[in-house]
Computed example of a mutant assay.
Amino acid sequence: MEFTVSEIGRQVVARGGLGSRTEAEESLAAVRDLLRLADRLGAGSQETGALRVQKAKRIRQDLADSGRLPSAEEVSRAIRTASR
């Protein structure tokens, strides 16, 4: 699964393992939704960009560790905790 984060470029977070093209498209949409949380929670373009980078790393790590995407609540909580 690949997606682009403007601040760090194209990212590959997973390869294979999805049962169908539909499942892959749904997973990609979920990743994009998770990254959009940074758009809503960041204060200014620099902070938003930094949050996107953090979230891309978190998504990659969660997929590597558990094989699943983090929930929106997990990502929101991590963003709020990191901004304190």
Score class of each variant (00 low, 15 high):
Arg21Ala: 15
Ala82Arg: 02
Ile59Lys: 04
Arg80Lys: 14
Leu35Gln: 03
Lys57Arg: 14
Thr22Ala: 13
Leu41Phe: 09
Arg80Ala: 14
Ala82Asn: 02
Arg52Leu: 04
Gly67Ile: 03
Met1Ser: 08
Val53Ser: 04
Ala82Val: 01
Ile8Arg: 12
Lys55Thr: 11
Ser66Asn: 03
Leu63Asp: 08
Leu63Val: 15
Ala78Glu: 08
Ala43Leu: 02
Arg60Trp: 09
Asp33Gln: 03
Ser83Val: 06
Pro70Ile: 13
Ser76Asn: 02
Ser45Tyr: 01
Ser20Thr: 15
Gln46Trp: 07
Ala14Gly: 11
Gly42Arg: 03
Ser66Gly: 09
Ser6Arg: 12
Ser6Met: 03
Lys57His: 11
Gly9Lys: 03
Gly19Glu: 10
Ala38Cys: 12
Leu69Ile: 04
Arg15Ala: 14
Asp39Thr: 10
Val31Asn: 05
Ser6Val: 09
Ile59Leu: 02
Asp65His: 02
Ser83Met: 13
Arg60Tyr: 14
Thr48Ala: 04
Ser45Leu: 11
Arg68Ala: 08
Leu69Gly: 05
Ala38Leu: 08
Leu63Gly: 01
Arg21Thr: 15
Ala29Cys: 02
Asp33Trp: 00
Met1Tyr: 04
Ala14Met: 13
Glu26Cys: 00
Ala56Phe: 05
Val12Pro: 00
Arg32Asp: 14
Gln46Tyr: 05
Ser6Ile: 07
Ala43Trp: 03
Leu18Pro: 02
Arg32Ile: 15
Ser83Trp: 10
Glu7Pro: 01
Glu25Val: 10
Pro70Ala: 13
Ser76His: 04
Asp65Met: 01
Leu34Gly: 06
Ser27Val: 09
Arg58Thr: 12
Thr22Cys: 04
Pro70Gln: 07
Glu2Phe: 05
Glu25His: 13
Thr48Asn: 02
Gln61Tyr: 11
Asp33Leu: 11
Ser6His: 10
Ser71Phe: 06
Arg80Phe: 05
Asp33Thr: 04
Leu69Phe: 09
Ala29Leu: 11
Val75Pro: 00
Ile59Thr: 01
Ser45Val: 11
Asp39Pro: 01
